[in-house]
Each structure stands twice: as C-alpha cells, then as structure tokens.
Design a protein around this nucleic acid. Structure first.
Lengths: 341, 341
DNA sequence: ATTAATTGCGCACACGTGTGCACGGATTGT
DNA sequence: ACAATCCGTGCACACGTGTGCGCAATTAAT
C-alpha cells in the first residue's frame, strides 16, 4: 500500500523528481507548461506531500508539544482550546499529552516530544524539580511554561501565567470589605506552586489588615481525586460556628464546597460566603452563581502559543504575567451580623 | 545547533553507523564489548533517537490523529482523556485538533493528519457529508468514528459510540413512569445526528405509550453558543403552565435550563423535572443533583483507541456500541398532582 | 591441516523531499 | 557571426535511520 511520491509523478511526467519538487513548490525557474502538466498529474494521482520526509530534510517539523496535567479539567480544557486554535492557525500540528500530576511522567512526555523533534514545547503547571529542569535544559528545545513557577536561572526558557498572588489579594480585599473576620482557605497540593501563591496572597493581605492568625484556617488536600469531591470533603471539616467565608483554590473545589453546604443546610451567601478561582463556564450557572477570581483561560493558551511562535521566529519575546480579575456574583455577601465585630 | 546522530556516535566509537544502529536496537550480532562501548558513548553525547528519520525509514509514524469538535466541552474533555491514556500507554503520539463544529475544517484537519502520515485517525462527532467521506476514503487511513452517525457503505471505516436512541428511550420511560404527560425536548443542531436520535427515541417511546402529539414540544437551538447559555434560552421559551418535564440533549443544556428555572422561581423537581444526558462531572454536584443518562465517556475514548490499535495490528475488530444508563438523582420527581391526568 | 560454519562488522541502498551546481539549448547583444 | 546571457532541467547529495548482503576473521568440524 505505497503512497504516491514525487518520484511517481516524475515518471508519469517524464521529468526528474527535482523538477516535480520545484514545480510543486512554485519555483519560477520551471516553465509554465511543465508546471501545469505536473500539477495536473499530481492531482490525478492523488498526491499528498509527505510531511515526514519534508521534516527530515528541513530539520524542522512544524510541530508543537503540549503537556498538561489533566485534559478533562475544565480549566485546562479551555487553555488547550486556546493553544490549539493559535497552533492550527499557524500551520503547526499539536501533540497533546497528559501527565496526571506526575512529575516523572511530565518529563517522560517531554522526552518523547524531543524524540519526535518538536520545534517547541509548552508545559502547563510544571512540577519539574531541579534535576528534571537540568535534563530539560540539555535538550535545548524552546519551551514555554504555562502557569508554572520556574526560576529563570535557565536561559532559553519562557513563561506565561497569571499572578496567583494578586488573585489571592483580590479575594482577601473582597471578603474583608464585606466584613468577614473568620475565614478559611481550601486548597489542593496537586498544584503546589499556584496553590501556595493564592493561599499566600490571601493570608498576607488579611494579616496586613490586622486579622489575628487564628482567624484564618488553611486546608490543603493532598488527594488526587476529582476537585469537586475534594471541595466537598474539605468543606465538611470546617467549623461553621466561626467561619463565615471560604476562599477556594479553584471553582471546582468551590462548587464541591457549595454542594456540601446545600446538603447540610448552610445558606450561601447568607450564612457563608464562597469565592472561587478560574471562572470556568459553569461558575456563572451554579446556584448561587459563583463569585470568583477570573483567569483569561483561552487567552492564556493563546498567549503561550504566540510567545512560543515568536521565540521560534527569533523575535525578541518577553514573558507575560496576566492579571486575574474579581468577578462578583451571588455566592458572596456581607458577613452575618452576629459574627462580625 | 545540530543534534547528535548515530553517525556522530560511530565516529567516536570508530565503527560504522550501521553497527551503532544495531547496537542501539539490541541486535545480538554485535559483540558485547562493542555494544557497551557504544551505549556508553551514546549516553555521554546525550543521544536521542530521531523519530522522524525512523518514521521515514519504517514507513510508520506511531502517531494517531484525533479530531473533536471542541476540547473545552466537558464531555469531549473526558473522551480525549481516555484516548490519550491508551494512546500514551501504547507508545503512540497523539495529534489533537478541534473542528469547532465546522465540517470543512474537520476534513481539513484530516488532510493535515494525512500529510503527517498518521497511522490512524479518530474523528469525534463526524459531520462529514458524502463528498467528504469519499475524499476521506481515498486516503485509506484506518479511521474510527466516535459517536458519529456513519453509514457503513465505506469499507475500512470503524465506529464506536453509544446508543443515543436507547438513551432517549430511557429518559422517556423514566419520566412517563413518574406520571409526566406534558413534556419538552431541548436540543441543539450543533450535533445533528445524535441530537436527532435522542429526540427520536424519546418521542417515539412516549408516542408508543399513547401520548398525544401535541403534548410533546421539541426545541432545537441552532446557535453555536455555549451549551449552558443555549439551555438557559431554550428553557425560557417553554410554557410551564402545561409542561412538567424537560429532557435535554446534554447536561450542560440541562444545567442552563435549571439555572433559568431557579432564576424565575420554578421549583425543581417539585414543579418541573429535568433529565440531562452524558453525566459530566458537575452533574452530581448541581442543586438539585441532576438525573441524567450516563455515557461512559472515558471508556468511550479508550474503546475507540483500542479498536484503532486492533485495526492497525491487523486483528479482527468489530464496531462497538456502548449502552447508556439511567442515573436517577434529584432533578426528577413525580409529576405535580394538578397536571397529571 | 583443510574445509565448513559462525561471528562481527562495513558497504550500500532505501525511505521522500529539497537544493546547489552544472550543463545544454535558446535568446540577445555587439 | 560569434560571444555573452538566460532559461529550463537533471545530477547528485543531504537529512538520520534500518537492514540485506558480503567479507574478513575467528572458531568448529572432519
């Protein structure tokens, strides 16, 4: 079941394969008569250029590798969508792999990408340690880290992300302004870096306002389970005689917490305010609609891809940190009177 | 910035590149001493095999192309996850592209996959017409259609999907048994085939029970908007003085409808029952938790990939139709007394 | 001790494409 | 009319890898 090659076309047109190659590529040194004849024959034979052979010859594959933690995660789904759109628009094919939050698998995927000689790599939510970063640095493939915390000690690496700390600050400002004085953070160690920064921005801002240390509870689930479940379980461990507000690592965890509250009869937002993170599609359709810190998810993916393309084109390119925004909906409200002081 | 090749290794080891190739592949005709020396040098030089050159030589790329309508859709996100998992486990790299519900783009993507000489293709929710199917048939790449309606006039094509008609039947049985006698179907023409089958299974079953034609309203949105929004808008067009039950094309539309009901004070499930389709992750965490027709989403992706692998291995392989199941939660209940007759 | 078998390795080709260089023929300049 | 230019095409190589075949050297068999 051999495919038709330019050699086959050459035989039919009674020319050399060089001429066919030039004709197909529109080289002006080929006469018009010969060119049209070749194009016609190519069409009749159903010729499709072999990108593999071209890649080998050109030492460039026009291929990008994308590794994320979990494709089924609504956040990453949108990011992937943005990456894919820009990628396709620029005639780059996209390899996709999921690491399932396993750093060693993350690196393994990257090695496979390298074998396939991808022109560039985008790695989402990198959890690579020093040793792994060194290994990665050796292969010298342009790499963009997406929502990852990487020290820029390594030259040639680039980054796109959002300011997680600022997101935590936004949540703190919002809830403090509503009068909440006993709060909790619900996070997950599945993404250590961003979880840490959101938690930190939240905590430091509150402390700056004068909140006593004991009035902020932080819970970090170490489970790899579905975030909705994690939220449900973390929410069940909170002492609601004191706590009047929850800030959650992401919307899925917030929605899980919300579900727990409904099931045990805690009124949101009357008794308890909940703030999420990401602003996934469902956030605005939950009951009540979720107040959240919005990330420009699709734009995040698009930006990462555009940055990578710029690097590949040799253009000067700078890392980008996008800023999250507060979206106030109906899951947050002033603290109940009895508890605010 | 040339990469190290077996030729480079050969120079260092003072052997021919053939010997290096054989040594790396573990050919037993190479002496142990030479082999270990070569392996050591390969390691020192940081050699990584060039999969492009291998692909050209072997006329096989160990690559699969996957095209879906929308990666950010929670349903397809899970399907992609299943495909990717099996793919990676079998050392196949995965190309991903989204068609955004555009049939011509769907075909364009497939042509790109063909240029890259993928070993096989999985196309989700195919909307290819006859002409496009003919074009696809000409390139003779093993193809698995996932949740698509394809006539098997084309040999060499395979299919994996769920029985959408049976899903519609399940919904009808459930709602009829609860006493509902005025119902509505909320669908979307973004996926013509499956939408048609679900609607049909639902309608024919109800008619078989003796429901008068006028007691079932069917609404098909032609919008390309987010499904949550579609559900919200479709739900706002229903006459709730009669209708006591909604069957929705998928969970996102159902959740949109649910949000509408909450916003205008329609009690679910007391006044109105809602049944969705897919059983996406959020379905069990909505308020009330959604009664739905569950699809084995990840299994769907896994099955498709396994079928494709079987085809590639030349094994006898048969198309698979998985059966959806009814998951009863809290968005469906007996019809209110006043309306049931 | 001579032949046969085995072992270890290199030569050369193939996969499909792109391109520098040379070369023959046509065209133009003086 | 002869030389200089230009146009169209083919030759040959490169990209990196795998493998059939042959060849020399070593070992085993008679």
């Amino acid at each position: 079941m051999r495919r038709v090659s330019i050699e086959d076309i050459a035989r039919h047109a009674e020319v050399s394969h060089s001429t066919v190659s030039r004709a197909l590529r529109g080289n002006k040194r080929i006469s018009l008569t010969v060119r049209t004849r070749i194009l016609q024959i190519a069409n009749e034979l159903g010729y499709t250029p072999n990108a593999i052979a071209q890649s080998l010859q050109q030492r460039q594959t026009n291929t990008i590798g994308l590794v994320v933690t979990d494709v089924a995660d609504p956040f990453w789904g949108e990011v992937v969508k943005g990456v894919e759109a820009v990628s396709m628009h620029n005639q780059k094919a996209l390899f996709l792999s999921a690491s399932q939050y396993d750093p060693s698998r993350q690196l393994a995927v990257i090695e496979v990408f390298h074998q396939r000689r991808v022109d560039g790599i985008i790695v989402g939510d990198s959890q690579l340690g020093d040793a792994q970063m060194n290994r990665l640095a050796r292969i010298k493939v342009p790499t963009v880290f997406l929502n990852s915390q990487v020290d820029h000690a390594y030259p040639g690496f680039h980054a796109v992300g959002i300011d997680n700390y600022a997101g935590g600050v936004l949540a703190a400002q919002h809830l403090w302004a509503l009068g909440h004085r006993h709060l909790a953070y619900l996070g997950s160690t599945k993404r250590p870096a961003s979880n840490q920064m959101r938690s930190l921005g939240f905590a430091e801002t509150l402390r700056g306002y004068g909140l006593p240390p004991g009035a902020l509870a932080t819970h970090h689930s170490t489970s790899l389970a579905d975030d909705l479940r994690i939220g449900y379980e973390l929410a069940s461990a909170i002492d609601y005689t004191q706590t009047t507000a929850l800030f959650c690592y992401n919307d899925s965890i917030a929605l899980g917490a919300l579900t727990y509250c409904r099931s045990v009869g805690i009124a949101v937002p009357e008794q308890l305010s909940i703030v999420g993170f990401d602003d996934v599609a469902i956030a605005q359709f939950s009951m009540p609609a979720l107040t959240t810190i919005a990330q420009p998810k699709v734009a995040l993916g698009e930006t990462a891809m555009q940055l990578l393309l710029a690097v590949l084109a040799g253009q000067p390119s700078i890392d980008t940190i996008l800023t999250p925004t507060l979206v106030v909906r109906h899951s947050s409200a002033p603290a109940p009177k009895g508890t605010a002081q």
